[in-house]
Amino acid sequence: MALPTLNKQLQAAGISRRTFLKFCATTASLLALPQSAVADLATALGNARRPSVIWLPFQECTGCTEAILRSHAPTLESLIFDHISLDYQHTIMAAAGEQAEDARRAAMNAHKGQYLLLVDGSVPVGNPGYSTISGMSNVDMLRESAKDAAGIIAIGTCASFGGIPKANPNPTGAVAVSDIITDKPIVNISGCPPLPIAITAVLVHYLTFKRFPDLDELQRPLAFFGESIHDRCYRRPFFEQRKFAKSFDDEGAKNGWCLFELGCKGPETFNACATVKWNQGTSFPIESGHPCLGCSEPDFWDKSSFYQALGPWEWYKSKPGKGAQKHAGKNS
């Protein structure tokens, strides 16, 4: 069953070509593609078939789903997300139980080898009974659904690295998707929650180029995870000047100085929060006066206190391979 092209889908929804070009221009920018590629991107993406997507929420708090679904009303950045064929997502679909599972299996059969699998939440393997859907353990459902998938997008830190369920002492034996599935292309879009626009951009890249974008060593898209929060933080100049807030209400904090000594994990956290921002572009945690918690990194929950500095300034400055330098020359 061939799904319609995106062009047809958008035209039926009354979306003009100009709007689509605007979407392509902004997405190319997010994916660090040259603007000269926008016309080709529009042609390839417009002719792409509407993708079938199966979304499996496992051991999660629904924060990732909330972030994506509540992030924006149907607007530019959600253009693609609004037009995928979301054939299964048990948290939000009307069907439940066996009916929902029948829908999942029907989509898998109809789009064998072509559908994308989205997963949020970690997978408990210590005792599979900790999390089941319609009587099926998460690990069995993941294996069954991944078998004929074209690729997998792990949404959020739990699906990417185990996240909070994996935090010490990891009572459920939580693991990441990539710990179980090893024979499929997997993209990790980590974050607690992840940036919704990163998911859209990865979908666009996949539909346009028929492959996932370049990834870092943790299988995250370089366009979003290639630079640290610290690399693009507007407070970075204060770090270089050694101007630090020492407490949350001192003069340094009031002057907007660097939060490094208050435990900011921005120097070792890779994500695009500082440029893409949150809540309709309002700000990101550091801009609101709170240190970055490092939520898009593995084991962030177990890494020392959120309010303990990474180390002395001198130590950090002399440390090799930090920030943007870490990825220099990799995955090009």
């Binding site: 605007k22 221009a25 920018s29 924006h72 009303a73 607007t75 530019l76 572009g281």
Partner: peptide
């Protein structure tokens, strides 16, 4: 975008 957020 429609929330008057700069997208590009």
């Amino acid at each position: 975008n429609e929330d008057v957020e700069i997208m590009g």
